[in-house]
């Protein structure tokens, strides 16, 4: 249940995320000034919260999507298996997101 609604919620978040990425490309094509303003917004505290949320959404939706592709092929329906893969998807999203952001800040020296 929770895994199912989280798949939809992360999908809606990623819908907005694609609009943000399209906006980034548009700002880049518009020139240095527009790109500077746009990336400053993304780099603000609120922007970073949004970007971290999108990172979690990508990893969760990815794991949930793979889980559903397995369901489509008739695998993973046993309650114990379905519960375990649901928890694994949540754990993967949390761990992968923290690793990516921690790795970025450590390696880029910010």
């Amino acid at each position: 249940m929770a895994a199912s609604i989280a798949t939809r919620a992360s999908g809606v978040a990623l819908y907005v995320g694609v609009l943000i990425v399209a906006g980034l490309a548009t700002a880049l094509a518009a020139g240095p000034d527009a790109y500077g303003v746009y990336t400053a917004l993304l780099g603000s505290p609120l922007g970073m919260v949004v970007l971290f949320g999108l990172t979690v959404s990508i990893f969760y939706h990815l794991a949930a999507g793979l889980r559903h592709l397995a369901f489509d092929s008739g695998k993973g329906f046993l309650p114990a298996t379905a519960n375990a893969t649901a928890w694994a998807s949540f754990a993967f999203a949390a761990v992968a997101s923290v690793l990516v952001w921690a790795g970025y800040f450590l390696l880029s020296g910010h």
């Binding site: 990425v21 399209a22 906006g23 490309a25 548009t26």
Partner: peptide, 13 residues
């Protein structure tokens, strides 16, 4: 909305 932003993004890229 999705295709308008998509077209904008692709043309910009």
């Amino acid at each position: 909305v999705s295709w308008t932003f998509g077209a904008l993004g692709i043309v910009s890229v």
